[in-house]
Design a protein around this nucleic acid. Sequence first.
DNA 1: TATAGTGTAATAGTAAAATATAACACTAGG
DNA 2: CCTAGTGTTATATTTTACTATTACACTATA
Lengths: 124, 124
Amino acid sequence: MKFDDKIPIYYQIKNYIYRQIIIGELAPGDKLPAVRQLAVDLTVNVNTVQRALGELISEKIIEPQRGKGNFVTEDKQTIEKLKKLLITDQLKELYENLHKLNVTDQEILNYLQDYINERKQVQS
Amino acid sequence: MKFDDKIPIYYQIKNYIYRQIIIGELAPGDKLPAVRQLAVDLTVNVNTVQRALGELISEKIIEPQRGKGNFVTEDKQTIEKLKKLLITDQLKELYENLHKLNVTDQEILNYLQDYINERKQVQS
DNA sequence: TATAGTGTAATAGTAAAATATAACACTAGG
DNA sequence: CCTAGTGTTATATTTTACTATTACACTATA
C-alpha cells in the first residue's frame, strides 16, 4: 500500500479499514487479519497498526478479543452511520476548499460534472 | 489561523498563500507581508514560513527580491493554471475517495447536490 | 500441559517537522 | 555612513510519528 507522506500512516490505515468495512470486504462479525499479518501486508510496524486499531476500537467499529483477534462490529447501524459520515466529510471538504477559492455552488456542480465526463472520455 | 495537526504546517501555509493569490487578495506584482510579519500573523516560526515560501518560489508563484520582499508573479497565466490545478486536485480527491467507498458517479453528483441544498436550508 | 496464534504494551532509537535564536546579506532612506 | 526593513541561512532543541525489539496475557488445540 502506498502512503501519502503528508498524513500520518496510522491515520491512513484507519481509513483503509473503514473502507474495507464499508464496502463489505470486511463484513459485520468478520475477523480482521492478525495485527502482525496486517503489519506485514502494509509493510509497517505492529505498533503503527495497533495505533490505528486502537482508535477503531474506541469508536466501537471493531471489537478486540484477547487471544482471538479483532472483529468487525455486528451493529450494522454503526457501519451505516460511518459510511454517511465519511461521505459527508468528503463533500464538506470539497465544498469548503472550493469556496475558499471563490468558486460558487453552481460552479462546483458544473466542475464536478465536467470532471466526471472527462474521466469517461479518457476511459473509452 | 487554525492548523490541521494531521498535515505539516508549512504545507498548509503554502496552500493558504495559493488561495490568497487565486482570490486576488494578493494580486499579480503585489508584495507579500514580510516573512517575520507572516510568522507573527500565523503564530509560527520564521523558518516554517520560509519553508512554505521556498516551495512557492521554486514553483515561480512568487519571486523573492533580497532586501525588498517577496512578490506575486506578474504572469497571470501561471496563476490561472494554478487555480485550475487546485480545483482539479480537489475534484480528483473527492472522486477517488468516494469511489473507494463504492459510490457511483451518479451518486456522487446526487450527494453533492443534496449537500449543497441542505446547506442552503440551514443558512435561511 | 505444551505450543502456536492472537492481542497488548513497554523500551529504546531514528527521522521529520517545528521551534528559538542568532547571524549574515541586501535595499532604501535619512 | 548608518539604520531600519527585508530575505536567507545555520545551529541546537523539542515533539511526534514511526520503527525495532522484546515481553506479557489470553485462547484454542494437539
